[in-house]
């Protein structure tokens, strides 16, 4: 039994390879993009609209409201990045019920990639809002002595993001796989339902933490103050 879908390799040339993580990510991306396009190509601006449009509007407006609640009063610049984080992780969590499919977030490489994206996006958004000097100055708050601790905090929280998501997703998949092999059918189903719930919760936690980091970076307070 593989611990990570990275170990399932479909094609390799040197260091370049196509493993299950990448392939399943493409499949998930295809489903998300094509599904979105099919729904949004016939949007209605009237009071009469389809159920799918209602679903997407609820998701998008809820994400927008959540970002605003975190403290980003203008959520539009962050909606694309943060919303995609949530949708991708949540959709990956929902795919755990599919047979012969490994969620890409069960790979530490994927969660690390997402965490790195957050790690890079936070200073970019911070610099956009406060400028380079303003953003760098925030690392010396409240005193210059706090600079190393702020840097350590920045790195550690990125690592924590990646490990937390990976651990939860991987453990859920592993538990289901183990239970299917040693117990009757009912108990794995219950655990699968629990896994779906924890997956959605993890997606929400990942999304909220990323939003909080960006909110901290775009405000005048120190980014290390929120961890």
């Amino acid at each position: 039994m593989e611990l990570s879908p990275d170990q399932i390799i479909f094609w390799q040339l040197g260091i370049a390879k196509i493993n299950a993580t990448i392939a399943y990510t493409w499949a998930l991306m295809l489903i998300l993009v094509v599904g979105s396009h099919l729904i949004t190509r016939r949007l209605s601006a009237t009071m009469q609209r389809s159920r799918w449009q209602n679903l997407l509007e609820i998701i998008v407006t809820s994400l927008e409201q959540q970002i605003r609640d975190v403290g980003l009063q203008n959520p539009m610049p962050y909606l694309g990045f943060l919303g995609t984080l949530f949708i991708f992780v949540a959709a990956a969590s929902l795919t755990t019920i599919l047979p012969f499919y490994e969620p890409p977030t069960a790979s530490l490489s994927t969660t690390a990639a997402l965490a790195i994206c957050v790690f890079i996006a936070v200073p970019i958004f911070g610099v956009q809002q406060q400028g380079v000097a303003g953003y760098l100055k925030s690392y010396t708050q409240p005193t210059l002595l706090m600079l190393p601790f702020n840097l350590i905090s920045e790195l550690s929280r990125t690592l924590a993001l990646a490990i937390r998501l990976f651990g939860n997703m991987m453990s859920g998949s592993m538990i289901i796989a183990i239970l299917v092999s040693i117990t009757p059918f009912i108990f794995p189903i219950v655990m699968t339902l629990l896994g779906l719930l924890t997956g959605i919760v993890q997606a929400y936690i990942f999304f909220i933490l990323a939003a909080v980091y960006i909110a901290a970076a775009t405000s005048s307070s120190s980014p290390a103050s929120i961890n």
């Binding site: 260091i15 390879k17 993580t21 995609t84």
Partner: peptide, 17 residues
């Protein structure tokens, strides 16, 4: 390599969505 590929995949997904 997978990390890099997933990063690129995620950024593409952000743009597409």
């Amino acid at each position: 390599f997978t990390v890099l590929a997933q990063t690129v995949n995620f950024l593409i997904l952000v743009w597409l969505l």
